[in-house]
Each structure stands twice: as C-alpha cells, then as structure tokens.
C-alpha cells in the first residue's frame, strides 16, 4: 500500500489548466476560422445611398421596389426603373453616379447587384402576402437598409453560394430577423402569428 501511495504522490499535478487552454484556444480558432474559411467578399458594382434616394422619392421603399400588376414583386429595380429618373448625364456630383451613368445607363447594361437577402431558389416567398396582406414593414426582415448611406460589404458563403445575411452575421444562431433570414425565423414568425408553417407553404 505504501508503495502505491508513493507512486500517486509522484504523478504530475492535475493540469486542468491545459484542458482549459486547449478549449479556449481551439474554440477561439473555431470562432475565428469559421468565417475566415467560409465567407468571401464580393464587391458591389458601385456604391449606393439608400438614404439619399429615400429623401428624393415620395413613396418610400415602394417607389423603386414595387409590386407588379399581377401581385408579384420586382425585388431589385431594373435599369429601366432607374432610368425613369436618371439619364446618361449624372444628376449629382458623386463618383459613384458617374460610374452608374457611364457604365450602365449609357450602355443599357443591367446592374449586377449582389443581393443581400436573396433566398435559395427552392423557397417560394410572396412579398404581397407579407407586406400587402400581413402588413409587415420592410424593415422587419431587411433591417435599416433603407436608411444607410453606403452599401455594406457583401459576403457570400463559399460552399453554398448564398449571401451571409441568410445565416446571419453572428455565428451563433440566436438572432432573428432582420439580423438573420433562416428558415427557422420564417417558421417561428408563422407559428407566433398562427399562420400555417407546413413545408409546402414555402417549398413548392
């Protein structure tokens, strides 16, 4: 028994701090590495001020992001919509507008915007049902996008190709809209408001 007791005494102390070190270090690597590995940036074609435009138009978001006659939603406005106000000559002084006039309006080329809120094609989403029928504000899902002076950096998921806004900018999925636009958020809102949340409501 004495021998056994001696052996125990000689063993190294319970270095639990090494466990903690490993945990903290690699959890940090996980938190740091995940977005670094997974997300890449894509530039927008040119800068755009929603704030400036909101001051110029009369009907808020709907002035440019409108419903078609059949109730479907135009989403990002087409170049034709921009051309209702903008000509080949810039209206203001900003370098961004010069790029817009020269490279797009003059060449009649559609603007390849990166769309932050673009959902996967397997999702059917009706803006009419949510905005016109349920009376949701645009900001409920899209946040304060309409008040921003600059377009923030667009990041996309290298693996899935979808905008980072869908999963949300926080890696821990605790947020809801407008910080995140995942299926769970749609389902939760449907449940909370007593709306059917079966698969086929959105996945046709």
């Amino acid at each position: 028994m004495a021998t056994h007791g001696k052996k125990q005494d000689n063993r190294s102390p319970a270095d639990w701090w090494l466990f903690v070190l490993g945990f903290v270090l690699f959890a940090a690597v996980g938190f740091w590495a995940t977005p670094a590995i997974l997300y890449a940036e894509k530039p927008q074609p040119f800068q755009f001020s929603h704030k400036l435009h909101m001051e110029q138009v009369g009907e808020g978001c709907q002035s440019c992001h409108a419903f078609r006659e059949d109730g479907s939603y135009t989403g990002i406005p087409s170049l034709e919509k921009c051309k209702e106000c903008h000509g080949e000559e810039p209206m203001g002084e900003t370098p961004e507008e010069k790029v817009f006039s020269k490279d797009y309006v003059a060449k009649n080329k559609p603007i390849p915007w990166q769309v932050y809120s673009k959902q996967p094609p397997c999702v059917f989403f009706s803006h009419a049902a949510h905005v016109a029928n349920a009376g949701l504000e645009c900001a409920s899902c899209h946040g304060d996008h309409g008040d921003t002076e600059k377009l923030r950096t667009y990041e996309y998921n290298r693996l899935t190709g979808y905008s980072r806004d869908i999963w949300g900018w926080s890696l821990i999925p605790l947020d809801g809209p407008p910080k995140r636009m995942k299926m769970d958020d749609c389902a939760k809102c449907h449940r909370d408001n007593g709306v059917r949340d079966a698969c086929f409501v959105c996945h046709k």
Binding site: L18, F19, V24, L25, F26, A28, G30
Partner: peptide, 16 residues
C-alpha cells in the same frame, strides 16, 4: 488534457 480541451473547444465553436 490539452487535446481533449482542444477537441471540446472546437466543437463548442460554430465550426462543425
């Protein structure tokens, strides 16, 4: 100890 901590830590991060 360190390795187990590392594995648990990595799994506690959102990576997986």
């Amino acid at each position: 100890k360190f390795a187990v901590g590392a594995v648990v830590g990595l799994n506690a991060s959102p990576l997986v």
